[in-house]
Write a protein that binds this DNA or RNA. Structure first.
Lengths: 116, 116
DNA sequence: TGAATTTATGCGTATATCTGCATACATGGT
DNA sequence: ACCATGTATGCAGATATACGCATAAATTCA
């Protein structure tokens, strides 16, 4: 019984990690932290969101183990915990652009050059 | 203005794809479909969920473009739209197991061989 | 046309998440 | 001790999602 519920537990954790990616702001945060570590308020300003929102989103990413934070004086520096997260995001972005291209091509066959 | 809101739109779609992965049942469905295409009720039985739940989850995956469905007689066969989704899931699973291993190792240094 | 099989969906409920605002908490410098 | 700066959080409201049950809709076959 332990092992069957164990795999369920792992799948649940797997889904938790995916949930962490299921928000536009958090995706932007992850890409930003991939560029360079940053603290909450800098991130908030960079992305044009409130400090409150940035703090909560970072907390979600921390809980799921995608971001590591450490105090540096007054501020807390956040950084990516594992760059494979970015690889995964890039793969999913590629899935998206493929789909969009297919749709565009399909639309073209129906109604040639219908741009607005 | 169009282009700035365009990138926002793409990030939103990116997050939509990630949301599709943010559920344990849907993760199981994707891995199952990666093994072989299947119809709703077969999938429901295989995963031990109701037909209703399977149908709705498949609909989510279809809306996000991760699963393609086509009628085959009475039933509707569902299949993965893009295997890169599995690659992404595998990457994220690797992130998870790395983290779990680190935690286990850390626990070991504190309280050696504390298994139950 | 009518019965059987497979899917989809309306409904109600429970739960989760996001957000801004205001405020508490933590740290560093004076 | 006090103030400034940076960060976390309680609260309330809005929105989204998952679920089971029952039932509608689609398709095939007799």
């Amino acid at each position: 019984m332990i092992s069957s519920s164990l795999s369920q537990e792992i799948t649940a954790l797997h889904a938790d990690i995916c949930s962490a990616l299921a928000d536009p702001v958090r995706i932007l945060i992850l890409y930003a932290l991939n560029e360079k570590p940053s603290n909450v308020s800098a991130l908030a300003e960079e992305l044009g969101i409130t400090q409150s929102a940035a703090s909560r989103h970072l907390n979600v990413l921390r809980e799921r183990g995608l971001v590591i934070s450490q105090r540096d004086g007054q501020s807390v520096v956040n950084m990516l915990a594992d760059s494979r997260v970015i690889q995964a995001l890039d793969l999913l972005r590629a899935v998206l652009t493929s789909k969009l291209k297919n749709q565009a091509a399909l639309a073209e066959t129906i109604e040639p050059s219908e741009t607005e």
